[in-house]
Write a protein that binds this DNA or RNA. Structure first.
Length: 424
RNA sequence: GUGGAUAUAGCUCAAUUGGUCAGAGCGCUGGACUGUGGCUCCGGAGGUUGCGGGUUCGAGUCCCGUUAUCCACCCCA
């Protein structure tokens, strides 16, 4: 076993896996552009207090999952466990919300959480997230959801389930909370240990309990206790999702784990994942901007895990486009030919072709095998014969055809000989 | 933090009740007309069986510890 290995919960994307990542990333960027979201990049670590205040003191993330350390200046810093607080912080810090009443941004960035790894869960994972800040319109909720949902569809994922719920606002939630407590308090005995604690700490989370799924079904639903404005908002979100052709399933037990959520809560899950089946989730957070020191502004967004995208893609058997093929492989025999090959590869690369040359001084057979493995379109064979004639043997790996081409012509006008797909 | 499973060549895995059991396939590499790929055939390299103890005449094969990985819980992407 190797002396050093990637630390628990982290992993390497080796060259063989890179094309799949690039594909997912490019689909995401294309979708974000289609919806008019602009990219934002924030630091990998922040003031610890940003997450304590933003994510919420009582959340599991803050309680036990943060990578927190003290730097040499005595500052308490934390590796970003989630994307929303840093984004809001940046928008406030740069006055983006004063410059424009509504901002739409997305990010693609690593997140860090100290958790026990399992299928679809890592200590460092990559999130695709998007936020719309400054819009109270239910269309903002619907657009954010549609961005996530259609991105997953574009990736070829199917059997997706979009769970939707509304958890109300500071005006109506307290009353609902009381109803819930009143409902469960008498049945305390029938609840699991976790829920007995939750009834005081955070009763809404009892709805999330997997052990007592059945006992939760007849509990009062948040959607039945919404104040008029939250109820109207939720109705519009639903009809806008229909307008956007995004199928949803109401789930009155869906409660998101972060403190800042208000009104809309949603989650997209795939049956092609393990126990952690959410590809992404999010919701509205109308109080967060103010909470973090900005002028009050509503917001809505989501976070989604790329590793889970890749996992679902693989488990579902969705084909992933292969990486770009090599245009030209130069097989040279001997030092003089190698020098000539270097000269030609320089010229070819200058014209925009991808081109590589043997570095091991191996036999021609071995070089051709290598070219084949690299899926090269053409191979230029250069040996003593070619050097004497002043021309190279240009072999088409797809048709098996081969012809002689003078060195001078090759460098200037290879297109003429590669009737082809080589891109200039 | 809790529970369960697993740790044998680069990868996927074999190895009867502890006694030639350290192997196969793939991959890598060389060759089959000393200059021509993908198929086929032949050869080669590569493992002190995660690590440390113990039991035994003898341990990948049993016991203890340790580390790591995987899966599940909590929770989340």
């Amino acid at each position: 076993m190797a002396k050093f290995q990637a630390i628990k919960g982290t992993y390497d994307v080796m060259p063989a896996d890179a094309p799949a990542w690039q594909h997912v990333e490019s689909v995401i960027r294309a979708r974000a552009r289609a919806f008019g979201f602009r990219e934002i990049r924030t630091p990998e670590f922040e003031d610890t207090a940003l997450f304590v205040k933003g994510t919420g003191e009582a959340t599991d993330i803050v309680q036990k999952e943060m990578y927190t350390f003290t730097d040499k200046g005595g500052r308490s810093l934390t590796l970003r466990p989630e994307g929303t607080p840093p984004v809001i912080r940046a928008l406030i810090e740069h006055g983006a919300l004063k410059e424009s009443p509504c901002v739409k941004v997305f990010y693609l960035a690593p997140m860090f959480r100290y958790e026990r790894p399992q299928a679809g869960r890592l200590r460092q994972h990559t999130q695709f997230g998007a936020e719309i800040v400054g819009a109270e319109s239910p269309l903002a909720d619907a657009e954010v959801i549609a961005l996530l949902f259609t991105t997953l569809q574009r990736l070829g994922l199917s059997d997706l389930t979009l769970r939707l719920n509304s958890v109300g606002c500071p005006a109506c939630r307290p009353a609902y909370r009381d109803k819930l407590v009143a409902h469960f308090r008498p049945k305390l005995e029938t609840l699991c240990g976790n829920c007995r604690e939750r009834i005081d700490r955070n009763p809404l989370r009892i709805l999330d309990c997997k052990a007592d799924r059945d006992k939760v079904q007849d509990a009062p639903a948040a959607v039945d206790s919404l104040c008029p404005s939250c109820a109207a908002h939720f109705e519009r979100v639903k009809s806008l999702l229909e307008a956007l052709a995004v199928p949803y399933a109401l789930d009155k037990t869906l409660v998101r784990g972060l403190d800042y959520y208000t009104r809309t809560a949603f989650e997209v899950a795939s049956p092609h994942l393990g126990a952690q089946d959410a590809l992404g989730g999010g919701g509205r957070y109308d109080g967060l901007v103010e909470q973090l020191g900005g002028d009050p502004a509503p917001g809505v967004g989501f976070g989604a895990g790329l590793e889970r995208f890749l996992l679902a893609i693989r488990n579902q058997g969705v084909p992933v486009p292969a990486g770009q093929r090599l245009d030209v492989y130069i097989a040279a025999l001997g030092m003089a030919a190698t020098v000539k090959g270097a000269e030609l590869s320089g010229a070819l690369r200058g014209k925009g072709y991808s081109c590589e040359q043997d570095l091991q001084g191996r036999s021609l057979k071995a070089q051709l095998r290598e070219a084949n493995k690299l899926n090269a379109r053409y191979v230029l064979v250069i040996g003593d014969d070619e050097l004497a004639k002043g021309s190279a043997s240009l072999k088409d790996m797809d048709t098996h055809g081969q012809r002689e081409v003078p060195f001078a012509e090759l460098a200037n006008n290879i297109e003429a000989y590669c009737e082809c797909s080589c891109q200039g």
